[in-house]
Design a protein around this nucleic acid. Structure first.
Length: 273
DNA sequence: AGTGCGACCCGAACGC
DNA sequence: TGCGTTCGGGTCGCAC
């Protein structure tokens, strides 16, 4: 389930493989995942060369000669880079390359999406325009979070999943960040103070840095795909755990905003409410 | 504007 | 064993 560390890992592997290769043909087998004009997607990438691969939040961006191909893996999207071969089940987009290889996008649940825009439209005509700050941004500080949080009466868990405030955290790492910050996931965001915000920022950076080093988290049994076989799952402190590693209390699981939330009732108390 | 929730998908896991 | 049901993961779109 790709969150920031998984996407970062995939990005790095793709970048190692794709630079300077040209696209000779594009196949789309599930058109609804292409959110910009389908014919332009099929035609405009032909002859384009991969110049860079970047990550913004959980989004992948392939920069080509003239275009930006924006790709979100959602929960199960994967890329494979292999010698040309037959399409396999659940592969929805195949980019043919000028070295005899293909870049294949596989997504069992078909939740992933792609956009193709002219490079200069990347931050105006795609969902990237809606993203908040990167966790590692210099502009991410207590004041920024306090300002964003002050109008939000939703649980902090829900607010940290809002990619328009801070990008990159998903269901797993949000639980980890709140545990490390000793903040209850139920606490209303507008009730957090500067110290809470500071803790969230520091925890996020530490956890994401650590997870990137380990190649991300692999919770479900993934077949080996490009980049996505991390080992951070072994370091998770609350998510999927039964016993709190700090105080040995049972870890509780409850739904917040429809999402399974793991937390320690003793270490993560709701204060000042 | 903020909030709540269904929709999008499909296979694995679960219950009977 | 076989069947039906539930669940999950990120984001969007709609209604209030």
């Amino acid at each position: 389930m790709p969150e920031l560390p998984e996407v970062e890992t995939v990005k790095n592997v793709l970048k190692q493989n794709l630079l300077n290769l040209k696209i000779t043909k594009v196949d789309v087998f599930y058109p609804p995942m292409i959110k910009t004009n389908l014919n332009e997607f099929l035609e405009n990438l032909v002859g384009e060369e991969f110049l860079d691969v970047k990550r913004y939040g959980k989004w992948l961006v392939f920069e080509t000669t003239n275009y930006a191909l924006v790709s979100h893996l959602r929960m199960e999207g994967k890329y494979y880079y292999t010698l040309k071969c037959d399409r396999e089940k659940h592969e929805h987009v195949i980019f043919h390359l000028d070295n005899g290889y293909v870049l294949r996008y596989k997504d069992v649940r078909k939740f992933g999406v792609m956009y193709l825009v002219k490079k200069e439209k990347l931050f105006t005509d795609t969902p990237l325009s809606e993203l908040g700050l990167e966790p590692f941004s210099k502009d991410l500080n207590e004041d920024y979070l306090l300002e964003k949080f002050k109008t939000k009466r939703l649980p902090i868990k829900t607010v940290l999943l809002d990619q328009g405030i801070m990008t990159g955290l998903g269901n797993i790492y949000v639980d980890e960040v709140l545990f490390k910050s000793k903040i209850s996931p139920f606490k209303k965001a507008n009730l957090l103070n500067a110290n809470d915000c500071k803790a969230i920022i520091e925890s996020s950076k530490e956890i994401l840095t650590d997870a990137i080093k380990l190649g991300g988290t692999t919770i479900r049994s993934y077949t080996s795909s490009l980049g996505v076989t991390g080992s951070y799952q072994d370091k998770l402190l609350v998510h999927t755990r039964k016993i709190c590693p700090v105080c040995n209390s049972p870890i509780l699981v409850k739904k917040i905003g429809g999402r399974s939330t793991y937390y320690c009732q003793k270490c993560q108390k709701v204060k000042d409410e």
